[in-house]
Amino acid sequence: MSIDYAHVSETRGKADPWSFLRDRDIERMGEVLRDPAERERWAMAFLVGGGLPYMWTRLAANIQDIAYALLDLRPGDRVLIVGEEVESCGWRGAVEEAVGPAGTVDVAELIDEGNAAIFEGKYGRNGLLAAWQWTYTHDTPDETYDAILVAQAAQHCDDWSEASEEFVRVLKPGKRIVSAEALIPGGGGLTRSVDVDIHVQTWFDKLVGPLKVALSELGAYTAEEIKDAFGDRVEGARAMEWRGVHVFWGRKPLRPGSSTAVGD
């Protein structure tokens, strides 16, 4: 027997399970459950409150270790991190430890800018919410960095082809860029984790229903999409996915005639 799942995508994030509250629910948990503003406040708390440091330090620390290894950091390196919650997720501390006191870690922290864009309804040139043109390296000289890490920030870039060209410009030949991103289910068409079970969809609908933000309007780039955006600007480009976490990495080509050999 075949099952038609089309109706699932039609109702996902649109149906209102809160309208099915029973009097017994109110008696047990309080009249506050009927307050739309309170439900929105908690929905936003569930969506963004403390999630990133929890995911990265407790659930995906193994992926962080992979990202650090891929950066191929050495003492004295100068590294750029563009990310969200760079401190609380441990990205900065780990990179600083790897490059040592002689190294330099430049950070572009996006969390406040990203949250403001969501709450204020700002859209990028790609038509997606909370995405914008990245100008963080526009004043940076060519070949400044020994490594670049995009840590949970890829969704906020509204043109990855443009950004990839800029990142390669400021990266030294033979050096790596790595992006690691835990994508939001429901954003960018990533809905398999929601569709897998009606309980999961019910919880999802309870979460996103009170929000004024449509998760489908948030940017979400898979590692493969970022890999495609870099194209032949990097060598040894790879992409992987693990439990919704997407990792891309690639190395800037060496100058013609260089005899220094590096692995992918």
Rank of each mutant, 00 (worst) to 15 (best):
Ser2Tyr: 05
Asp25Arg: 00
Val32Arg: 07
Arg78Tyr: 11
Ala108Gly: 03
Glu224Asp: 14
Asp106Phe: 08
Asp77Lys: 02
Glu143Met: 04
Val79Met: 02
Glu109Trp: 03
Leu70Gly: 06
Asp205Arg: 00
His156Val: 05
Pro141Glu: 08
Val48Glu: 13
Trp132Glu: 10
Ala131Gly: 03
Thr222Ile: 05
Arg24Phe: 13
Val200Phe: 15
Trp42Asn: 04
Gly93Val: 09
Arg12Val: 06
Asp25Thr: 03
Lys175Ser: 04
Gly219Thr: 14
Glu96Lys: 12
Gly13Thr: 14
Leu149Ala: 09
Ala180His: 03
Leu190Gly: 09
Val262Met: 02
Gly51Tyr: 14
Arg58Asn: 11
Met240Gly: 11
Glu217Ile: 06
Leu59Cys: 15
Gly244Ala: 06
Ala37Ser: 11
Gly188Leu: 12
Glu241Asn: 13
Gly127Ile: 07
Val194Phe: 06
Leu254Tyr: 06
Leu171Val: 13
Ala214Glu: 12
Ser259Arg: 01
Trp242Phe: 13
Asp35Val: 14
Pro53Arg: 15
Gly263Arg: 01
Lys122Ser: 08
Val234Thr: 07
Phe20Asn: 15
Leu80Tyr: 10
Arg22Ala: 14
Glu40Gly: 07
Ala261Gln: 14
Trp132Val: 05
Gly103Lys: 00
Leu183Gly: 04
Gly219Ile: 15
Ala180Gln: 11
Leu128Arg: 14
Gln152Arg: 01
Arg192Gly: 15
Asp158Phe: 09
His138Ser: 10
Cys89Gln: 14
Arg255Gln: 03
Trp134Thr: 00
Asp228Arg: 02
Glu120Ala: 00
Ala45Glu: 15
Ala151Cys: 04
Val79Thr: 10
Val150Asn: 09
Tyr145Leu: 06
Trp249Asp: 11
Gly103Trp: 00
Gly114Gln: 13
Gly174Ala: 06
Arg22Tyr: 11
Ser9Val: 12
Phe119Cys: 10
Ile3Pro: 01
Thr140Glu: 07
Asp195Arg: 12
His156Met: 12
Glu224Phe: 02
Ile118Asn: 02
Ile226Phe: 13
Arg24Ile: 10
Glu224Thr: 02
Lys175Pro: 14
Gly121Ile: 00
Pro256Cys: 00
Gly188Gln: 10
Val234His: 02
Asp72Thr: 15
Val208Asn: 04
Glu40Trp: 04
Ala6Val: 13
Val200Asn: 15
Ser259Lys: 01
Ile177Arg: 00
Leu73Cys: 08
Trp249Lys: 03
Gly90Leu: 06
Asp205Asn: 11
Glu109Met: 07
Ile118Glu: 12
Asp106Asn: 07
